[in-house]
Design a protein around this nucleic acid. Sequence first.
RNA 1: GGAGAGGUGGGUGAGUGGCUGAAACCAACGGUUUGCUAAACCGUCGUACUGUGCAAACAUUACCGAGGGUUCAAAUCCCUCCCUCUCCGCCA
Length: 427
Amino acid sequence: MLDTKFIREHTERVIQNSSAKHAQPDIPGFVRLDERRRAIIQEGQDLKAKRNTVSDEIARLKKAKENADQRIAEMKIVSDTIKHLDEELRGIEEQMEHIALFVPNITHTSVPHGKDASANIEVRRKDGINPCEGEKGFRKDHATLAKEHGIVDFERGAKISGSGFPLYTGKGARLERALLNFMLDRHTLHNGYTEVFVPFLVNAASMRGTGQLPKFADDMYACADDELYLIPTAEVPITNIYRDDILTSAELTKKHCGYSACFRREGGSYGKDTRGLLRLHQFNKVELVQFAKPEDSYNQLELLVGEAEGILETLGIPYRTILLCDGDTGFSSAKTYDLEVWSPAEQKWLEVSSCSNFEDFQARRANIRYRPEPSAKPEFVHTLNGSGLATPRLVVAILEHYQTEDGRIRIPDALQPYCGFEWIGEK
RNA sequence: GGAGAGGUGGGUGAGUGGCUGAAACCAACGGUUUGCUAAACCGUCGUACUGUGCAAACAUUACCGAGGGUUCAAAUCCCUCCCUCUCCGCCA
């Protein structure tokens, strides 16, 4: 959410930025409502001030056993007027909020302009680290490999829940767990994150705090009877840990990582991208979340991207890092880098991480603040997050890059201690 | 799920209709003093919005879990909801 004052004072910029992000909120309407709102507040405050002083007078009169009926009658009318003003004000603020919740975050000046992914900028690429040689005829795609080795049972997953709910079996389940443990250990032991294990169902206030609601309601699974939502990412519960809190300057930058299952409806996305593990309704992810001072946040974003890249480097998977243009940058984000791994079978880059600086956009919604100095006024923190990383496409990359000519799959060195085996498949 | 108790400022905690935005204590911050990892004393010490002002600041208003209601006037009375604690039941 943007600051009302900011929208009022930078109306043109907000309109342009919204349109770059393919959104058309009614900014002029918002500004008009804001004018009326402030007029009502002023009028209401004057009347309330009058009521307060006269009420004191009534108290004095009554104490002195004098008649106050005249004043009471006057104040009854004043109170009625106040009531009507408050009602109008509530209506206006509701309308304003309805508009404000759909205004996207302003992108950072370093973000390139463009209408879609074609304007994104590749900032780094690490290929040539393929441990099992280049693109050869023996290569099979991940779904075929997964079936042949019996490590993912898509059919039974579909029987249990539906398509997009994979059932990992045997070494596949072990590999999944190994990846998660490996990544969590790395972020907690080497990158200075404090681990959290979060609820997977959250309330509406949490979803609003991180920006999933109200705009993306259709993308989420909801438990209507309990007003709870299945999280699409651990970003939601982790960021909301400090909703309505005031942090101290000393505890920033605060870094949390956590595993969660992630649930996404992915409505209308059936097509070629849905093969195997490429796009799922439920998947596993380790998430990185940071709460930073405004002056540190962009430096922290670069560090966070590096931490996510470190996982791919250690696993020896070819990847590239993309800076998203404004038209491709998410609703809540001011600047986003995507990490993509190469799928030789798909001949495509697959997104495995999205690392963003939200500046104070989420913090304003979720009311997460800090005091720059012990007795200073609280200010909004900057929030950042990134996947570190999501497992399904990581498994895709491992299967496809680490398959050998004899049809087996070698486990990356760093994962072997976590897996307890070196190979998938018989020689 | 049933019964009871309770939710007040960073913390503890007083306050049952009008001089209470809220005592007291603790913490924190500033200062004085004592020459020493401390103590004493003095002072400051919630948040938001609106307005005036370049600003520091000042003024109004609102906020005592959330939302409604009663009243000239609500932390205080009434209703609904949420949460916490205790006991019982159930359960991994």
